[in-house]
Design a protein around this nucleic acid. Structure first.
Lengths: 230, 230
DNA sequence: TCCAATTCGAGAGCAGTGCTCTTGACGGGT
DNA sequence: ACCCGTCAAGAGCACTGCTCTCGAATTGGA
């Protein structure tokens, strides 16, 4: 086993190198990165890569999973660094962390939240990591409610079918969360995604030099909508 | 000229057939459609297509432009069909029309609002059509303000740098629009984009059977944020 | 009416892609 | 010392966008 671990270690390093090279190409080639190109980078034949990843889609899946984890870590860490009772501070920290991660890793963000790759369908392993960022944000509202810092929106705000759906979701993911508050939290997450996507995919560029301030303000609007106290 | 128009007409029909076939492939292949495949569909050599479109990217650009126009038409028509004074009705009509168009043409929506195609950069012709849908929505708020049905949000809501940027944008695109109201209108558009994208790119599907109702409710939240009277 | 000019389609070819299969070499466990 | 699993390389298949050339068809003017 110890002797075998030598081989395994070399193999693990090889896998890491492939992933690193693939990530590098991701930045320029987007989702359709070339296996042959990463093989060239590593000075090996393209066929050799198939010893480590059964297919190109499989490599992509690995990159996607790790990207989800990285984004989730960033958001959770930012949230955790703020005083638990400072709801608004936590909201800002989480949202800013997501944006910062996206701006730092635009290709990976596009892989996660851009248009789906045509032939590719994400495996089920990805749904749990994909839930971490929004759950972190919604957790802030839940904490505020539990601490009595936040009054939930009136439930008659919510049409019956939506209330039923959201109650089910809350029951399985955020126990004790009122449906109407969950709806507002999801609105905040949707808005965050839209903001980052617009900024990253370039549909804003013209005239909006103070992007940081604009982002903060839009996030503040949603914080108000969720009901986080100022 | 009349004799020439025969050739010109055949050419125009050929172009239409190519675009139609390309749109058909767009649904399955996404952004990386194959010129050879559409050529096969039309029973011609792949090289013949280059008589009509100088490159594959050029074909894509044409499809993108027409998609923007179609979406803009849909939203504007829906808005125009509602009584001018029914602000909330217009807001719902416009948003629902955008969603309906996206659900009916998912591939084209992905082309417009998904991750940018790696090597491809959209020409400047696309920015004006791209502005039509959000401008229609923001126009609703502008009309409401002009009619006195809507009280603008307090300007001190807006940090100074953002106010400056948005004032400039308003001056060139929506004259007479207060910056703080423009900010909320843009938030509504961002939210609409996020909602449609989440639904289309499949990150919601699990447990949310009443999508229409959910969409309406989220849109209503933003209508409230913009200040459209109930 | 005939002719030159333009337009068009088809085919071959280039460089690139993902992926498969075969071949040969290396090295760890018995 | 041998054997067998692991690995890398190469050839090859079907595909891609794109270019070029070469005949055929159509056009507008003389």
């Amino acid at each position: 086993m110890v002797a075998n671990s030598l081989r395994a270690r070399v193999r693990a390093e090889m896998i890491d190198e492939i992933k690193a090279a693939a990530r590098r190409h991701l930045a320029t080639d987007g989702a359709n990165l070339s296996l042959r190109a990463v093989a060239r980078d590593l000075g090996m034949a393209s066929s050799a890569i198939y010893r480590y990843f059964p297919s190109r889609d499989d490599l992509l899946t690995t990159l996607i999973l790790e990207a989800y984890m990285a984004l989730g870590d960033a958001v959770e860490a930012a949230d955790a660094a703020v005083d638990r009772d400072d709801l608004r501070g936590r909201w800002f920290a989480g949202c800013r962390a997501a944006r910062a991660w996206a701006l730092a890793n635009p290709a990976e963000y596009a892989l996660l939240y851009g248009s789906p790759v045509p032939g590719y369908t994400a495996p089920d392993d990805t749904v749990e990591p994909a839930l971490r960022p929004p759950m972190t944000l919604i957790g802030i509202a839940r904490d505020g409610l539990a601490a009595g810092q936040l009054t939930p929106p009136p439930t008659d705000d919510l049409p019956q079918p939506v209330r039923a759906d959201l109650t089910d979701i809350a029951a399985s993911l955020v126990p004790g969360m009122p449906a109407a508050l969950l709806a507002r939290g999801m609105a905040g997450w949707t808005q965050l995604f839209g903001l980052i996507s617009f900024e990253l995919f370039g549909r804003i560029k013209g005239g909006l030099p103070h992007r940081d301030d604009y982002f903060d303000h839009q996030i503040a609007l949603m914080a108000d909508l969720v009901g986080l106290p100022r």
